[in-house]
Each structure stands twice: as C-alpha cells, then as structure tokens.
Design a protein around this nucleic acid. Structure first.
Length: 209
DNA sequence: AGCCAGGGTCTAA
DNA sequence: TTAGACCATGGC
C-alpha cells in the first residue's frame, strides 16, 4: 500500500501543476452548494448563464424565488437556494472579504459553516480549502473512488480524512491540489472505463502512476 | 427508460 | 448509531 504522500507524488508527477477551484471565494461557495448530488456540467451551465452577476451582493439582492429559478437546472433548487442565501448572509458579516473571514480560526470557521443548513462536511471542507485556504482534507465521491481503485477499503469518511491528514503537511494548498489531482485522475480513467469502480487493479487504471 | 450525478437532513428502529 | 427516504433536474 502506498502512503498518502507517495500517492500525491505520483499524481503530481504525472498530471503536473493542478488548477485551483476558483480564485474568487464566493464562486467557490456558490458552486460547492450547487454541485451537491449534481453533475458538474449543470453547474457550469448555470454559472455561465449568470455570468458577471455572480457576485455576493447581486445574489443577496435576489428574492428567494428569483434565486430558485436561476439555479433550477441544478436540482434540489429550493433547499439549495435557501442554503446559498444563508451563506451569503453569513459572508456579509465579514463584508464579503476573505481576509476578514480568515481572522477566524480553522476549527471555529468549520463549525460556523457546518451550522448552516445544507452544508455538511464535504461542502464545508471544499469552502475551507478553496475559498479560505484552511487545511481540512476534502472527502467526496472522487476521494472515495480514488482510494478504492488503489485497494484501500475504508468505511467511514472521517477515517479517510485522517488517512490523508496524518501524513501530509497541514497545508491548504497541498490539500486543494491533492483533491484536484484525484479528480483529474478519476475523470481521465473514467473516459476509458465508464464502470471503473470495479477495475482498480487493472493495468490500464494504474499505469503511469 | 432508467439510472446517476463531487450531498444533506430527518426519521425510524 | 445507522440505514433509508426524500429532495429535483438534466444528461446519457
């Protein structure tokens, strides 16, 4: 079994410099909610339609119904609209400024996010890492799928989170890059093997890694 | 046609 | 504490 660090080295060597989700914290928050149990393509389309109006103030000024109709294509639009409005109100307490949010400690920030209805562990960690540069390893469908392919079998997300956090430097940039690399890898493999969860030991899925 | 997508919440046992 | 129902739409 490879360690989390060794896996990272191989991913980084193979795929090179990963992208960041978005430089804009509000874009990260907005998209992280929209993508819940939804395909990324729907989120992209929705955000493209909103265009430059995707700012916290613009979204804050929308009525619930207006926001619902904007995000409808992403599914679960009523609950997501409510979550986004709550998030915006929360962000407004910090004047929509990342540097103000960053005055809060990581653990308190995580608690604040988790207290918002519609934000669970995964969404909170995405926001912590990509929007506010706080190290809290993201465990999502890609993380689980990635580990499965390499023969790791964990039942519980908190155990997976620990697997990464215990052996990596506590660094948000590393966590964000790592998550992005796993995503890239899953997408690259899935193009060749649509049902790839069950092919983790096949050579095609592991070559060059 | 039917199943799934980068989840989260609430409830029943 | 945990499995299962529910939320909803679009893409393939």
């Amino acid at each position: 079994m490879l360690s989390a660090c060794e896996l990272y080295e191989r991913l980084y060597t193979f795929y090179g410099q990963p992208r960041w989700w978005s430089d804009d914290p509000f874009t990260v928050m907005f998209q992280a909610v929209l993508v819940q149990n939804t395909s990324w393509g729907s989120v992209e389309k929705t955000c493209a339609a909103i265009g430059e109006k995707l700012t916290p103030q613009t979204i804050a000024d929308l009525s619930p119904e207006e926001l619902e109709s904007l995000i409808r294509p992403c599914g679960f639009y009523k609950s997501k609209a409510r979550t986004i409005q709550t998030l915006v109100a929360w962000f407004q307490k910090y004047d929509f400024e990342r540097r103000h949010v960053r005055k809060v400690s990581s653990s308190d920030l995580r608690k604040e996010l988790l207290s918002i209805r519609g934000i669970g562990a995964e969404t909170a960690d995405v926001i912590l890492v990509y929007a506010f540069y706080r190290p809290s390893f993201i465990v999502d469908a890609y993380t689980r799928r990635f580990l499965l392919r390499f023969g790791y079998q964990y039942s519980d997300d908190t155990v997976i989170k620990q697997f990464f956090e215990k052996s990596l430097p506590k660094d948000a940039q590393v966590y964000g890059w790592y998550h992005w690399l796993m995503l890239e890898h899953c997408i690259a493999v899935c193009k060749k093997h649509p049902k790839c969860d069950c092919c983790c030991f096949q050579k095609e899925c592991r070559q060059n890694l």
